[in-house]
Design a protein around this nucleic acid. Structure first.
Lengths: 342, 342
DNA sequence: ACGGTAAATGTAATCGTTTACCCGGGCAGG
DNA sequence: CCTGCCCGGGTAAACGATTACATTTACCGT
């Protein structure tokens, strides 16, 4: 039994294909009687219009593509969930691709758009290759793409992000209030825009307090937990170890605390640790992690909304440089920070 | 500038559309000279065939759909990553949908397949509504679907899963060896097939040792961390608390340890805790979590591979009841389990 | 009664590919 | 030199929907 086509439905309902199509997508353009008749047949056979044919005709796929740096990293799943929050009610589907595997296939990040497979793109990876970025900058593509969480440096794409600088300033202020003067910092990947912003925010806040953050006190090369674990040992081995460690991700912080624990160093007794993100586990680590909360789900939700707006043409030829949407962050105080030991 | 079509390429290269199409998909059916000429034009304009049109013609989308219970749960991201591992090399795209939001829209889980939007389905949700299950059971759909991780009870679908029973038997054996006799168990959602299997495995192993697991010693209603935290207090309040807690997920275990810590109960000094899954954080909790490792990435990878096999027709009309692929599990011993206190 | 208008439906072009079929020319075997 | 075959390539018919345009019918005002 092959799948039913609109022709079959038309024949069974005794009308033309045009009428069937109208009954389904423009219900008020056919008479009540006809509509009922068509619907009956449609229901009876559970007919569903072939979406390829429809897309071909209307030049729209009702699908957007999410480009994720690494699907294996659970950090992104919550953003994806937020994207779905906005997309699902609009009847838009989500296609996900991993920039790791995509690059391995030497496939342009935007080939999906060019192949008309997706109407728009939500990119969670700020480190797209230059040629992909160039492809996305054409006027035809401008309103079809938005960056979420990360964004490419020096390009004017619409983007949604957390207030990373303010976040680190909050973190530093919190620790200063608790009497800390000796800081260390666990950074993420060197080229990463989040590393850059958060590092800058921290430096700024420390400088205002007249505190210097020497290179020797900066460690970490990824946002991963294992990196935090390894860095902990290095950070504490100097003659005058820090009393507070600023971590640019919760995973780093949790790894770091784990490492400190292994060395017999007490958190927050000997050293305070603060994270960034507020992932689900932060509340349940031991000690519970003080951290900077960013609304990952909101990031996804708003990014998707902005994309949908752009696609519907409501935002056509916007101002030359679209303003990034910056989401507020908050500090959530738990048990990993305390007054500095004297 | 509208997107280039195959017609434009044909004109520019001075050949017919048929030749262009052949040059791209059947390179050895055109002469070297012509192919070069076509390719030049293709490269120059970065032409990409419209995938809707192609799909419509060839009746294949090269896309599969993954149905995830809850995208916000990071547990699934690793499985998704595994799916991508298999899909990407085959040039197949991944569409993801969330059964939570989908159900809210009252959309049949299989409408994507019926609408020819995807060739196949990988379902990570064992609790699909009965009508969806029925739709998937038609001969036309049989070879287009595979379940991963979870599976629907009492239906014969191809599936890939971990050896959940054996996993719990390993866990119980490990604790018995360490002299434990007083057990408690933190279960997942009541109807869930994983809960059922793991619980059965635990009961079986305990029964063999002549140990009973009373209902009063079973707690937990989800796999979530918060649930583990809350259950810890309840579990320990009786007159003769357990010395070992079997948790049906790592999240439960971590939440549980966090709760125990809050009560001043030492792990593994006072009570041993064992998890299930071996998520990334298990190695970095304090104490590091002893757990049953299941290969989530492998689950996804193999499920996707099985689906691709099914789609390519290599496995047409398989035996009546397709055997589930069962992946082995292992116990990884860390710091959360120790000899029972006497 | 008649022309005009709007509502309901049908006819057929269209979206951009792939591919079945056809055709012409070169070449090998007789 | 003829015959048949293969090879390279063109023509046009699908694929399954949407929709501009045409057509029919009913109704209304004069």
């Amino acid at each position: 039994m092959k799948a039913m086509g609109i022709k079959d439905i038309a024949r069974l309902a005794g009308v033309s294909t045009a009428t069937v199509s109208r009954a389904l997508s423009n219900p008020d353009r056919v008479s009540d009687a006809t509509r009922a008749q068509v619907m009956a047949v449609v229901q009876a056979h559970d007919y569903r219009a072939n979406s390829q044919a429809r897309s071909l005709r209307v030049q729209r796929t009702d699908t957007v593509l999410a480009l994720v740096p690494n699907l294996g990293n659970p950090f992104f799943s919550e953003i994806i969930a937020g994207i779905q929050d906005s997309l699902a009610p609009a009847g838009v589907d989500l296609l996900v691709a991993d920039t790791l595997t995509q690059q391995a296939r030497r496939q342009s990040a935007v080939s999906h758009l060019q192949a008309a497979r997706a109407d728009g793109l939500i990119c969670l990876d700020g480190a797209l290759p230059a040629d992909s970025l160039a492809d996305l900058s054409t006027p035809a593509m401008r309103h079809r793409v938005v960056f979420a969480c990360e964004w490419p440096i020096g390009r004017d794409f619409p983007s949604v992000r957390s207030d990373n600088r303010a976040g680190m300033q909050l973190a530093v202020a919190h620790l200063l209030e608790h009497g800390h003067r000796d800081f260390a910092l666990l950074a993420g990947p060197p080229g990463n825009v989040l590393t850059r912003e958060r590092l800058a925010g921290a430096r700024e806040a420390l400088a205002q307090a007249g505190i210097d953050l020497p290179e020797s006190r900066i460690d970490g090369h990824s946002f991963e937990i294992a990196d935090g674990f390894a860095a902990a040992a290095r950070l504490m081995q100097g003659p005058k170890p820090p009393t507070a460690i600023l971590c640019l991700s919760d995973q780093l912080a949790i790894g770091c605390m784990s490492g400190l624990g292994r060395m017999g160093i007490s958190v927050p007794g000997d050293v305070s640790v603060i994270g960034f993100d507020d992932i689900a586990l932060a509340a349940y680590s031991s000690p519970p992690l003080t951290t900077i909360r960013q609304d990952r789900r909101g990031l996804g939700r708003i990014a998707a909304q902005r994309l949908l707006d752009g696609l519907s043409g409501r935002t056509t030829d916007e101002a030359p440089a679209p303003r990034p949407t910056v989401l507020p962050i908050t500090l959530v105080q738990r048990g990993s920070t305390a007054r500095a030991k004297r």
